[in-house]
């Protein structure tokens, strides 16, 4: 059983790809309001773990429980409707649509559910949704770009817009897959500030990250993954001092 303040419980999850044991014995508890970082060298299984949580990959055994509901076996849209939003490593956006519409679509998903046949309603009359989207774009500093086609944005702006697309749904859990990958130092710092702002609102987050600067400025709790196993678990200070972590990282690509 999960304790009341545990939002996400990854219980004894294994994932095998043929002979490869990508995830073994993963047991992870994410508490309400916390930012939980998952770090590890390349190929440690971080993205696989995220894909198991979000329902993209079925675990070979074990299960993922979110707020009392078993996620295993549910479809991505059902998992989102339970209150989990995801930011991808490569931004998944509606490249042909305007920035404003990109942010309005998730707001409509939150309000109308997985399917609604509202053929004769005009999108122009959705003033509340539009105002909400504009407000969210202001929040992430992109209001002046709202009429641009999303595909023409810079990578940093695409990521910020994707974040706005997730935040407008007020998710109970936000999953971030390397939110600063491929960003300049400046963009990285802006993103950290933005994520700190979200954190102040008490949103629960699971974040996968390479960049130690990002992890140590944001995380309340860190789990270190190496070769498909969690080798260390604890507060940033505990993890920093753990010899096993240093070994894993010195042995890996990150010196």
């Amino acid at each position: 059983m999960t304790t009341p303040n545990v939002v996400l419980h990854v219980a004894d999850v294994h994932k095998r790809f043929g002979g490869l044991h990508a995830l073994a014995d993963i047991d992870l508890q994410v508490e309400e309001g916390q930012t939980h970082a998952i770090i590890g060298p390349n190929g440690a299984g971080k993205s696989t773990l995220l894909n198991v949580i979000i329902g993209k990959l079925p675990p070979s055994s074990g299960q993922v429980v979110f707020d009392g509901a078993v996620l295993t076996g549910r479809k991505p849209y059902q998992i989102n409707q339970l209150g989990i939003a995801r930011v991808f490593q490569t931004p998944e956006i509606f490249a042909d649509l305007s920035v404003l519409h990109n942010v309005m679509i998730p707001a409509l998903a939150k309000r109308d559910g997985a399917f609604k046949l509202n053929l004769m309603r005009s999108l122009d009359s959705e003033t509340a949704i539009r105002a909400e989207a504009e407000h969210m774009l202001e929040d992430v500093g992109m209001h002046s770009r709202r009429e641009m086609t999303a595909g023409s944005l810079s990578r940093g702006d695409k990521r910020r817009m994707e974040l706005a697309m997730c935040l407008i749904q007020h998710p109970r859990l936000l999953l971030l897959d390397e939110p600063t990958a491929g960003m300049s130092r400046h963009d990285t710092n802006t993103t950290i500030e933005l994520l700190k702002k979200i954190k102040a609102r008490g949103m629960t987050k699971v974040i996968i990250e390479h960049d130690m600067h990002v992890v140590f400025s944001l995380a309340d709790k860190i789990s270190v993954l190496a070769q498909g196993r969690i080798i260390a678990d604890g507060t940033p200070d505990q993890v920093r001092g753990n010899p096993k972590v240093q070994e894993a990282y010195l042995g890996g690509a990150h010196a």
Partner: peptide, 24 residues
């Protein structure tokens, strides 16, 4: 011009995002 039409455009543009945004 309806929200439904916007969802159809969303499906054309990025069906993966539509699924992870909570749309069936």
């Amino acid at each position: 011009g309806s929200p439904f039409g916007m969802m159809l455009k969303g499906i054309k543009s990025n069906q993966t995002r539509m699924n992870y945004t909570g749309f069936n």
